[in-house]
Every structure is written in C-alpha cells, then in structure tokens.
Design a protein around this nucleic acid. Structure first.
Lengths: 338, 338
DNA sequence: TTGAAAGCGCTAACAC
DNA sequence: GTGTTAGCGCTTTCAA
C-alpha cells in the first residue's frame, strides 16, 4: 500500500501538509510526537502520510538538529571473529537507542582511521568507537580532541577518553600460570605488533607469571608476527620447533594465531598437547570446534561491545560528564590443548 | 596546525568566506574543484580553510545534492566469516569510489530489513546491497521498487534486480559427484532454511548428481537446521549417525555447518573421513585449519562483494540502464575430509 | 571570474 | 492547538 506518491521522487513534508490541510509545523509535530496536536488533526496528518507514502528525509532533519544518529565503529579487521562479536554487541545497544552503526575497517592504518574520523567532523556520524591500536589512537588523540569517541579493548590511559577493556596483563599471567601448573617450564610466546596495547600488556603478564616461578623468556622462544591470521600462527610454530631447544608450551596472544599454531604443529607431526601444549586468547567460537579444543582466555566480547556503545551514548548525552574507564572480567577456559 | 577555530563548534562555509574576503559561492567552488577560480583567490580561500580548520558539513551538502554517499549492506549475520569476506570486497570498491558502507545485520528478519531499507527512502543511504534470503527479498521487492539496490548471493530471478552469485546447483552437483566418485552411495544432506535460494538450489544440485548415479536421498538422511552455526552442525551429525542405516558421507551446505559436523562426529568417536566423509561449502579460511582439513566448494567471496558493489555503483550512475545478473565460477577444493 | 540569492526538507521559536 | 517564519550549511543558477 501507500505507493501512490512514488511517481516523481520523494514526498516532502509540505506535500503532506497540503494534502492534510494543515501546516508543515503540525506535520512535523505529529511525526515527532512532540507538542500537542488535537487527535482529529493528527489523524488527518497520518492519513495524508499514509496516502502519499511519505518518509521523512532524515538528511534534512539531521541538518537541522545537527545530528546524524550514526555511530562510527572503527576496527582493524572486520574479518576477525573476535571483532565481529564485539561489533554485534555495539550494534545491539545502538539500534535499541535508535542509532545505526557505520562499520569501518581501518586495517590499523592511521591514514584510513583519520579519514573515517572525519565523518565526525563533517557531521555524518555523531560519535565513534575505536578499536584500533592504542598507539594510533594516541597519534590522533590530539587532533580528535573535541569529537566524541570512546576506546574499546585498546586504550591509552594517558588520553582522556572513556574506554572499556579487560585486564590483559592479569589475564595473560593467568594463562601462563596455568601452563606452569601443568609442569611446563619451557614456554614460548607468539605475540603481535607492539603497536597494540594488548600485545605489550600480555607480554608483561606472561613475564609476571614466569618470574613468580623463577622462569624467563629467552629470545629464542619469543616470536613476533605481523598479522593475526592462521598462517602467521603456523609459521611462528614452525620457527619455534626448529629451535635447538624447543619449547614444550606455546602461549599465543590470540585464538586465531593459536589455531594456526596447532596446524603448524600437526604438519610437523607434533601432537598437541602431548608434545607441545597450546594456549590461546579470546575464546572465539571456533576455539571449541577444533581438535583438540583450544584452551584459552575468554574475553566477554559481547559485553565489551555493549559497554563501549553505552559509554559513547552516555558521552553524547552529557558531553561534559567525566566517563570512567571500565575493565571487564576475563576467564580461563580449560579445554584440550593445555 | 589548523585547530584554531575549534573553540565554539564547527566552522561553516560562511566563516571561511568572510575570513578569505570572498563569497560563499567561491569557497564552494574551490572546495569542489568546480567552476573556474583565479589562482590567487583560490589560494586565499585555501589559506582561510587551513587557518580555521574548516571541514565541510556533508550533511548540508548531501541535503542539497540529494545524495549521502553511503551504501547500505544488509547481511543475515555479520559474524559469519563467509559474509565478512564479502563485506571486505564491497568495502574495497566502495571506498575507492568515495562511498562509505553502512553495514547492517538483519538476522534475515524482514522487519529489520525493512527498517534498514528505510535508510534509502529517508536519504541516508544512496543504494543497498542485500544478502538476505531471496524469499525476504521477494517479499520486499514490491515496496522497494524504485529504490536502487542489488542482490548478492541470494537473488530472485523473478525480481528485476541486478544480482551476482554463483551457480549453486551446479556447484552442489560437483560436490556430490566427488563424494560418489570416492565410492559413497549413502550420502546425507544437512541443509538450512528453505527460505534461502542457495539451500534450495544446492539440494537440487545434490539430487541431480545422485540421480545421475541412480541414487536417492532418503528422508532419514536429510536434515534441516535453522542456523549456520557450529552447534547446529554438530547436532545434525548426531542425528544422522543415530539412524538405523547411517550415511557414509555428509554434504553440509556451509563450512561452518561442516566443521560442526566434524566435531559432532569426533565426539561420537567416528573418524573422518574413514568412518564418514564430510564435504562443506564456501571455503572460509578456517576450512584449511582444522584436522583433517575440510574438503569443500570454494566461492569467490571477495569477487562476489566487489562485483555487487560495482553493480550497485553502475546502477546509481545510470538508473535506467538494465544491469545483467552475473554468475561467478566456483571450484572444488579437495582436502582431507572427502 | 565572482557574487547574490534561492532553495534542499526539516525543526523550533514565536505568534495567534 | 496550530500557523508563520527563520534558518541549519551547502550548491547552483543567474547576473554582473
């Protein structure tokens, strides 16, 4: 129904007003449920809206109200299941509050990130949630000051921006303690890019746990990869097992890496966890599917996203209010690999 | 560096004009590189822009030009790696053409889809790419007629909308022929929701291949699941192996399902492919990581996305031009499970 | 080559 | 309760 006015182009508010025999102000009032309108008038307007198939032009409304009802979400990699789950969390609270989310893949590239951030200054988005490395956040923080944004997972404590994340250092320490409790003393680390806060923090946590047990992390057991994909993990595993003295356990800072590690090990005819134990981080859905299922640290991804969105919405509502940083709990999930 | 005007709020074009001692029209011209402006004037304007830190308000521009430079992408599930890869393809060509993509998770729910589609009619997006079930596309096609959109993966040949996809029927037939070539005669199907075109087509393809070999698909070997997640696959596998006469091979219409199947089989102490062979569909990155690696049909996900975006852009550029449907090639990837 | 002015479709004072 | 009107920040004729 209601497709009559579709001939020319979009129906505007004034056409509705004319059809209903009222002013545009009245139409606006009923469309927004604001102000008082006599029921009879309201019905006339609604009838006209229906008859013409009127849809409000939000571009115009937003120009007037100076808001776009769009929330920008910048992630380093939309294909990574870890981020995908966070995005879902963000989306659910945003939509519930009448916002749409504009999802952008930055590839952790400051240039791309800057161009997306520009959406805020050009009024196409009201606020942003940034999941990019804290180092790139830091670089942009100064010029982005004044625009409403929050940090998720990655955050720079020195930048006065609301954030939500987990205690990566404590979580990594828990992970490594678990390995140690299984009797391992030769534990390797596969880490990413030190541009990421989590990478630095998880390494620190690992060293904490190692130190408690009087252990160390020799350079030979410390490999750094520049991507989180499966192949990077497999390649790192190959390197590790070719060392003179090979580790008996590997802690990978992400599940995707850990899953690649397991494949690499398998291709080298090494059994997990018998020959080498593997510990991941994140607890993506896939972790429970592989054989043996991956032992890992679970992050509350959904809540991370929900909280980030709430923080941002709160900041938009009360820009001057100081919003606290929040740390959510992690959890060790013991499965078959360690 | 250009952060002076940041005090109050955004700098507007008229402030730039004043600062440069020219009219707003001139500022507009230099901002858009249109019309001829004397180099000296242009420099004055640019200097003012720089000094004030001016960023154009796209909301206003878009209201004027009646375009938003946003492309809506509706997917049934952003968390599914298959869609994630397609989205990347879309994003890459969109960004290259100066468009942003608004990614929306519909959950294959017509209501949600309708509300997103509304972004088009309210001018917050210029066009849409829809990956939802062809049946929900069909339901909406009538009321969405007139708005520019294209279909990706799922499409209804009866709806005159440009589309890109693969030949699901031929691909599924290839998959099943492979199983038959391995000597299997008791082949089960795990399918989704018949709302999806691909589900119906893949089943038809399977029946084609079966018929060629004088085989059939008994009801007992045909299970339908209502989600594509791992657990659904595992549960379906459990059902299948509890049949009086259990199948020796399983064709799952998606890799995620197939991976769940393998886990289900493993939990039941059945070896893959020795006890039962498994064939997936899609070739998501994860397929190569599991043990044994998944044999599957590869879809050109990236190209699917890129093509969809190009089709849409083309349609936006020339609305009246008839855009053809395009079918991309698939490929059988033989690995360890069949 | 540049400027003045008329809107794009809507909201929000302010009148009546 | 409802209407009039002045913009929101920009683009785009049309004149000069």
């Amino acid at each position: 129904m209601a497709e009559s006015g579709a001939s020319g182009g979009a129906v505007s508010i004034s056409e509705v007003a004319e059809q209903a025999g009222v002013s545009v102000a009245t139409v606006s009032r009923v469309m927004n449920g604001q102000g008082v309108v006599k029921p009879a008038t309201r019905d006339k307007v609604l009838a006209a809206v229906e008859a013409l198939g009127y849809r409000m032009n939000h571009l115009a409304r937003n120009l007037r109200t100076a808001e776009s009802r769009m929330l920008l979400t910048m992630v380093p990699d939309v294909g990574n299941p870890f981020y995908a789950e966070i995005v879902r969390g963000i989306d659910s609270v945003a939509r519930q509050q009448g916002y749409f989310v504009l999802l952008c893949d930055t590839g952790a590239d400051p240039g791309r990130e800057r161009s997306y951030f520009d959406l805020l200054r050009t009024r196409r988005a009201d606020g942003a949630i940034c999941l990019d490395p804290d180092t790139v956040q830091h670089a942009l923080a100064e010029e982005m000051n004044g625009v409403p944004w929050v940090a998720c997972c990655e955050f720079d404590p020195d930048v006065a921006v609301p954030y939500v994340g987990i205690d990566n250092r404590a979580a990594a320490a828990d992970a490594v303690r678990h390995l140690i409790a299984q009797g391992h003393t030769r534990i390797a680390l596969i880490n990413t890019d030190a541009r990421y806060l989590y990478a630095r923090q998880r390494e620190a946590g690992m060293r904490d746990a190692l130190a408690e047990a009087g252990l160390t992390l020799p350079a030979a057991w410390h490999v750094t990869v520049d991507s989180l994909d499966f192949d990077a993990g497999a390649e790192a595993a190959r390197q590790l097992i070719s060392r003179d003295e090979a580790p008996t356990a590997i802690f990978a800072v992400s599940d995707t890496l850990a899953i690649g590690v397991i494949r690499g090990l398998r291709e080298a005819r090494l059994a997990v966890p018998r020959d080498v134990a593997v510990m991941g981080f994140d607890d993506i859905a896939m972790a429970a599917q592989i054989d043996p299922p991956l032992t890992t640290i679970a992050q509350p991804m959904r809540e991370l996203g929900e909280t980030a969105a709430r923080l941002l919405l709160q900041r938009l509502a009360q820009p001057q209010l100081a919003v606290p940083g929040v740390l959510l709990p992690h959890r060790l999930v013991k499965r078959g690999t360690a």
